[in-house]
């Protein structure tokens, strides 16, 4: 099994996310993670998702099937490129007068922020790679986690990266 990060630009039409997840599910691809949002052009959205596949042929087939969708503009496998991946998480954890300061100190190296404080809990916001967020969650588990909300990964290529082999295979 390998994880591939796929980035697709799509027409911002009603139901376009359905079309994408529909292609993935009926061809039995396993999505681990999906996120979607506008680009600078409000007619175009970017969706980023992570799939588990057995081989590169499999991911190539997936990309071709996605490309067949009329509302899909471009599909790129950016796994092997220089990419920046980020995820945002909001964590509500138990906190009281005794340990609040300890929590503040603990999360500081993660550049996480406290965005809400209540009598018995506080809410932390953290942005970073999936690994970083996983590490923070592990660390604050000792206080007792009430709720976790994660956005899923979004990604973008670095400015000076070259397109990789797989992108060239896609004829569109």
């Amino acid at each position: 099994m390998m994880k591939r990060i796929i980035s697709a630009t799509v027409m911002n039409q009603a139901g376009v996310l359905n079309r994408i997840t529909g292609v993935l599910s009926r061809r039995r691809f396993n999505i681990e993670n999906i996120s979607v949002g506008h680009t600078d052009n409000d007619k175009i959205s970017r969706t980023t998702f992570i799939v588990n596949v057995e081989s590169l042929e499999e991911v190539e087939q997936l990309m071709k099937q996605l490309n067949k969708q009329i509302d899909v503009l471009k599909v790129v496998d950016i796994t092997d490129e220089a990419v920046i991946t980020r995820e945002l998480a909001l964590l509500r954890i138990n906190a009281d007068n005794k340990n609040r300061n300890e929590i503040y100190t603990l999360i500081a190296p993660f550049r996480a922020n406290v965005v809400d404080v209540a009598k018995n809990s506080l809410c932390i916001q953290v942005v970073g790679t999936t690994e970083k967020i996983d590490a923070l969650i592990d660390l604050v588990r000792q206080f007792g986690i009430k709720e976790v909300a994660r956005t899923g990964v979004t990604a973008i290529r670095r400015g000076n990266s070259k397109p990789d082999k797989i992108e060239k295979l896609i004829i569109k």
Partner: peptide, 8 residues
């Protein structure tokens, strides 16, 4: 004409 057929 359908690229998805190739190698499927």
């Amino acid at each position: 004409i359908d690229p998805a057929e190739i190698g499927k």
